[in-house]
């Protein structure tokens, strides 16, 4: 299993906590999924914050607070500092959003914020693109994990750039990699794991399914299958047929 900042997780599935029909459904989805990490956030208290805190503590999983919605370095850094105190963890899923429609990360601000937070002792999980140079800069800034998007957050499109994601895996063989956004189906999650990714982070695909707990179970199965396939060293793909039944001994009729 993948090790993130010295901590080994029992599952390669990270699950978000947003958008479920009810807290009970959220809790059931987590139980069924066996997810090892729950992403959480901070918002102005409008009632419900304290109940939610009790709920996530009962999940018994590692918490990964995010800086969702932050569009600037200063805002993201302050949010991370606040999250560390509220959730009692150095782990931070760093989001610096650069584009309103695609929620594409502002990778320049991301690198700057990652550098500041790493220097302050944070364990940064950067929500990034699959750009090799950006990822190199993030590692230089102190990140020991990379979380490239599969597709825009909440889109359910899957892996938009399999080539880029594969290239990233090949470029940084020792770095834990997580596909963070865009997964809509278990097959997308399995595909990421088959490429050698260490984990996937899923939220909307589970929360917005008709039966979130059942989808959480399907995601867990897909992640396990994909991981097992990667470890089993898949066959090379070819563009032409390669007969599988032996030719030797074929009857001459």
């Amino acid at each position: 299993m993948a090790v993130f900042y010295g901590e080994e997780l029992g599952s390669a599935l990270m699950l978000g906590t947003a958008g479920y029909p009810s807290p009970a459904v959220l809790a059931r989805a987590f139980r069924v999924s066996g997810a090892g990490v729950a992403t959480v956030s901070l918002r102005r208290e409008a009632g419900g914050g304290q109940d939610f805190w009790a709920l996530v503590q009962d999940l018994g999983v590692r918490l990964l607070p995010n800086t969702a919605g932050c569009h600037g370095v200063r805002e993201a850094v302050t949010t991370a500092q606040m999250a560390r105190e509220v959730f009692g963890t150095d782990w931070i899923k760093l989001e610096v959003i650069g584009h309103a429609d695609t929620l594409q990360p502002d990778v320049f601000g991301l690198v700057e914020a990652a550098r500041i937070l790493s220097a302050e002792g944070f364990r940064v999980f950067p929500y990034c693109t699959e750009d090799l140079i950006v990822c190199e800069r993030l590692l230089e800034a102190g990140c020991e994990v990379l979380m490239p998007w599969g597709a825009p957050i909440g889109s359910g499109m899957g892996l938009n750039n399999p080539f880029g994601l594969r290239a990233l895996r090949a470029a940084f063989p020792g770095v834990p990699l997580v596909v963070d956004a865009g997964i809509g189906l278990p097959s997308h999650a399995a595909a990421a794991m088959e490429m050698g990714y260490d984990a996937v982070l899923v939220n909307s695909a589970v929360a917005r399914a008709g039966d979130p707990a059942a989808m959480a179970g399907a995601m867990a199965g897909a992640v396990r299958a994909g991981r097992a396939a990667w470890l089993a060293d898949p066959m090379e793909r070819t563009d032409m047929a390669v007969a599988s039944t032996p030719v030797l001994g074929r009857a001459f009729l």
């Binding site: 956030s41 918002r43 607070p65 969702a68 606040m82 909307s204």
Partner: peptide, 26 residues
């Protein structure tokens, strides 16, 4: 950011205070 241990600081007219609580997130 003002840590919990530092909340005895004085406020000034017009200061903008944010108090954030745990919330659902992806």
């Amino acid at each position: 950011f003002v840590p919990a241990a530092g909340r005895e600081i004085a406020l000034s007219e017009g200061d903008a205070v944010e108090a954030l609580a745990p919330m659902q997130g992806g």
